[in-house]
């Protein structure tokens, strides 16, 4: 039994083995981009919005509203980052219902890559908002003694993000596989439904946490020491 899609080589491209994680990611990228381009290709103010366009507007507006609630301001760069995180993760998690598709989020490499992206993006957003000096100053607040703890907190934040997402998705897939062997008719369906719910929640939590980290790094007042954490 393979626990990670990294171990499944789908095809080889120029001597480079493309595993299921990367192939699944590309598929999701093609799906998201294709659908978006298809729906928004004829976007004019004088054309009444179609059903699909309205659905996309609802999704984007809800994501933007959530980000605005957390950051208390509208920043399109945060929308691009956190919105893409959410759409990628939720699409990957929902595609677990497709037979034969291995979600890239079930790979620790993917979740680690996403967590690393958040870890890199948070300082970049903080530096872009406060400047380099202003951002580095947050590491020695409220006291320089807190510097190592703040650094450890930043790293553990990314690690927890990666492990949480990977654990939830991978465990759901593993449990479904085990139950498929034990009771092949009823329980896998229930577990798949539970996995879908968990995947949606995890996508939401991952994106929200990334937004919270970015918001805490870019907020004008000194960042709060109490941080919202996931269950």
């Amino acid at each position: 039994m393979q626990l990670s899609p990294d171990e499944t080589v789908v095809f080889t491209l120029g001597g480079f083995s493309v595993n299921a994680t990367i192939a699944g990611t590309w598929a999701i990228m093609v799906l998201l981009t294709g659908v978006s381009a298809l729906i928004t290709r004829n976007l004019r103010a004088d054309v009444p919005p179609s059903r699909w366009r309205t659905a996309l507007e609802v999704i984007v507006t809800v994501i933007n509203g959530q980000i605005a609630e957390i950051t208390q301001r509208r920043d399109s760069r945060v929308l691009y980052f956190a919105g893409t995180l959410f759409l990628f993760i939720i699409t990957a998690n929902l595609l677990t219902v497709v037979p034969g598709f291995e979600p890239p989020t079930a790979s620790l490499s993917t979740t680690a890559a996403l967590a690393l992206s958040v870890l890199i993006a948070v300082p970049l957003f903080g530096i872009g908002s406060r400047g380099l000096g202003g951002y580095l100053k947050t590491y020695v607040e409220p006291s320089p003694i807190m510097l190592p703890f703040n650094i450890i907190g930043e790293v553990s934040r990314g690690v927890s993000l990666a492990i949480r997402l990977y654990g939830n998705i991978m465990s759901g897939a593993v449990i479904a596989a085990i139950l498929l062997g034990v009771a092949p008719f009823f329980f896998p369906v229930v577990m798949d439904m539970l996995g879908l719910l968990t995947g949606v929640i995890q996508a939401y939590i991952f994106a929200i946490l990334a937004t919270v980290y970015i918001a805490s790094a870019t907020a004008e007042p000194p960042p709060s020491t109490t941080r919202k954490d996931a269950p």
Binding site: T33, A37, L43, E57, S76, Y80, G83, T84
Partner: peptide
């Protein structure tokens, strides 16, 4: 997504 989703939707 910025090119094909967010920008067109937000501009619209």
């Amino acid at each position: 997504l910025k090119r094909f989703l967010y920008r067109p939707i937000l501009d619209g």
